[in-house]
Nucleic acid binder design. Structure first.
Lengths: 194, 194
DNA sequence: GTCTATATTGTGATAGAC
DNA sequence: GTCTATCACAATATAGAC
């Protein structure tokens, strides 16, 4: 309510850009559109950013830093045998709680210039490496099967987690916690009977 | 080799458009780019299509018709207890064998005008309905667990299948058949030990 | 079926005042 | 931090000849 609590324009810009980029795509979203949503003139955008691609970079970095720290925190504070479940729940909570940014990061890498994309890819690679380490630990402690590589199980898990961005609706009947719990169940126990 | 075997220009156009749309995105791919890849002038494209969006529609329709018929054929000719496996293998074979078209269909719906998108969505809904029917049948015959809805198990399965478009490489070490077999294994048996 | 030439609109970005 | 005015260029698409 107070002046101090009002979200800064640059903050509004990045959030609103994430939504527009996810709904219509990065290339199909014009700077004019963004400025109209923000309620300022097109030229005024360039006080906050150097160019349109800055937004894509900031969205991607923020999304990856957010999920990396949230998942690391959740995993490290979970009891030994429950770390993979903690990872899945924290991942889904974070990714779906900030779906637009997360989805843009996952799907719009091709829209970035080479140098920037390499930086984002490195951040993403590191995050996925941390998932793979958690999977490998779960194999070592007997939670997960060991007849498939940690690499493959991680790919399967990320398939299961990442595609949710395409059908999750914040207003839908399933909330992120329930989705995380069920995905963990299907991943570990499988969909087979008995 | 012979003249008769040469792929028609309109056929080359649609295939090459699918690759460009997947690599760079629909909105970021210009008609100039397509015409240069095709080796004709920009204006000559309009002999083959009415507009750029036609390409997106044709790619989507073709991709959905292809996977629908391939999967239906595989399922109906598989032995009773093996139909879900046949579905998974046929789905992955078709989707990854034609990855660019399939990926564009899955990810570029937002780039289509409303009327066209509705038609594609209906085709896609029907295909996913057929997957859900196969899942429900597998629940009924005791292959799959019944404490989760067919709807949810289908969502999980499609997560597992669809995200492969983002990491599959035709030149990679895993071929589509192996990927399908392993995904089926993880889906039914789970990643858990014992 | 492909060409040259062109129409029209939209794009990301900048200059400089306030 | 936002404004008005403008730039240089790229976009999709069409007209009409061959």
């Amino acid at each position: 309510m107070s002046e101090a609590e009002r979200e800064p324009t640059s903050e509004r810009l990045i959030r609103l850009a994430a939504t527009a980029f996810w709904e219509r795509g990065y290339a199909a979203t014009s700077t004019r559109e963004l400025s109209e949503l923000l309620g300022i003139q097109k030229a005024s955008l360039y006080h906050h950013i150097r160019g349109k691609e800055d937004l894509l970079e900031q969205i991607s970095v923020r999304s990856l830093e957010h999920i990396s720290s949230a998942v690391a925190q959740a995993v490290s504070s979970a009891p030994e045998g429950d770390r993979l479940r903690a990872l899945v729940r924290a991942h889904i909570d974070t990714a779906l709680g900030d779906r637009d940014m997360h989805a843009v990061m996952l799907t719009e890498m091709r829209s970035m210039s080479d140098a920037r994309r390499q930086d984002i890819l490195e951040l993403r690679r590191r995050y996925e490496q941390s998932v793979e380490e958690c999977v490998a630990a779960a194999q070592a402690d007997g939670t997960l099967r060991s007849d498939m590589s940690a690499r493959w199980l991680t790919l399967s898990l990320l398939n299961l987690l990442n595609w949710t961005i395409f059908w999750y609706r914040p207003e839908g009947s399933l909330d992120a916690d329930e989705i995380g719990e069920r995905l963990y169940d299907v991943f570990v126990n499988g969909a087979g009977a008995g």
